[in-house]
Amino acid sequence: MGKGKDIDVFLRMNFLYQVMHKTIAKLPENLGLLYYYGFTLQMISQRTTSKLDHNIKSSICKRCSVLLYPGLTSIVRLKRKRSKHRVVTCLLCGTRKRFLCRPDYQVWYDKPGT
């Protein structure tokens, strides 16, 4: 992922992502801090034009930039009306994310050849 110069940025984003998990464990009621850490994480990747890992990106709300922790800040449901998929709804702003549940499917980034 990070070769050469940009290692500092990825180290910093990784650190901030772990801080968000620590804050939700200790201070689950304080959403202001969670928003602040999530917003800085998103802005760092924007300003330095460095991509977030897709696992990190899918676990942060696109609209209000709060960590989507199932049970505390989000609800996860499985649905099968169209093709089978997983729906994650943010409890703060109410946005939905849908992820397809296909067997034997890998994201392009995770494939060994790339």
Partner: peptide
């Protein structure tokens, strides 16, 4: 964002001990 209360941080409820694991990180 103001209506959702995202800019509010309750400073009275925060404790020093909650931030020690972040410091270790």
């Amino acid at each position: 964002k103001k209506q959702l209360g995202l800019f509010k941080i309750n400073t009275k409820k925060l404790k020093f001990d909650d931030f020690v694991p972040i410091h270790n990180l």
